[in-house]
Simulated assay, not measured.
Amino acid sequence: MKPTAVVALGGNALLRRGDAPSCDNQLLNIKIAAKAIAKIAVDYKVAIVHGNGPQVGLLALQNLAYKEVAPYPLDVLGAESQGMIGYMLAQELQNLMPTTEVSTLLTRIEIDANDNSMADPSKFVGPVYNKEEAATLAEANNWIMKADGEYMRRVVPSPKPMNIVDKKSIDTLLGAGNIVICCGGGGIPVCRTDNGFKGVEGVIDKDLSATLLAKQLGAEKLLILTDADAVYLDWGTDKQRALNNVTPEELAKHHFPAGSMGPKVEAAADFAKFGGRAYIGALEQSVEVLAEEAGTCVAMA
């Protein structure tokens, strides 16, 4: 029986920083991702979790253009992004692997409605702006903006994932031999009420959801692919250096930005403590990263 690998594709890996957020640009990067995943699927059962920061931010901007109705909430826009990105990924994978079933599952993830992030947003969504543009948009739309490298981006609440509501469906599809695209954008955030579940205004970090999925599936490996080729110390300075093989304890000695590499490092360390092997690296080097020939591998000593 094949071992299981959860592959987490960053929203910025599917739509690069500074690129126009067009369908053509996204499809170009999705084709790269599909080729990499197709190679991984030869030896592993694969569940794919994709990010949606740029995409859900774009949907929110488009949403503002029509003034006749109130804007749709972020949980609904997250569901839209799951369908959009999931369709494109599934189609490209099916084109490469015509005898393999590929399924996209709209996935709900339970969160705590009182999560601390609701009061302190940290999840980047949408395109990048210069400081002047960011200030204008923040005032016009009542948005919170934070620095993302040399640019500014909108931030929204990012509650921690607690439970995958649709886990049984994922199990069924993987058991049938499907490649499963699930928990897209970190999953649709929902919370329990006396009348069942209801949507929550926020965007769950896809790396934390991918770790939760990997743990609940009993996966052997977690592969986090982004637009960085590894985890670096002293990033952006003359002293920057990549970490190749590292333990969770060693990572805990350093600080990584909450809006970018921080959640990836947290997710990888969490999965390593659980007993798996976690990897962080570039989309184009996914096979090499999984083979521990590139990127960063996080595992217990």
Rank of each mutant, 00 (worst) to 15 (best):
T4F: 07
A8M: 11
L15P: 01
G18I: 10
D19R: 02
L28T: 12
I30M: 04
A36E: 14
I40K: 06
V42M: 06
K45E: 11
V46L: 04
N52L: 06
Q55C: 07
L58A: 11
Q62L: 15
L64A: 13
V69T: 15
A70N: 12
A79T: 08
G86N: 01
G86C: 07
Q94A: 15
P98W: 04
T104S: 14
L106I: 14
I109L: 13
S117V: 05
P121R: 02
G126Y: 01
T136V: 13
L137D: 03
A138S: 13
N142P: 00
I144Q: 15
G149V: 05
E150I: 13
Y151A: 14
R154V: 05
V155I: 11
P159H: 03
I164A: 05
G175E: 09
V180Q: 00
I188S: 03
R192K: 15
K198C: 14
K198W: 03
K206I: 02
D207C: 09
L213V: 07
L222A: 02
I224K: 04
W235D: 06
R241V: 11
L243Q: 07
N244P: 00
V246R: 01
T247C: 08
A252Y: 10
A252P: 04
A258T: 14
S260E: 08
S260K: 04
G262P: 12
P263A: 11
K264P: 07
K264G: 07
A267H: 01
A268I: 08
F271D: 00
G275L: 01
R277G: 01
G281S: 12
E284L: 13
Q285E: 15
A291S: 14
E292S: 15
A294F: 03
T296I: 09
A299P: 01
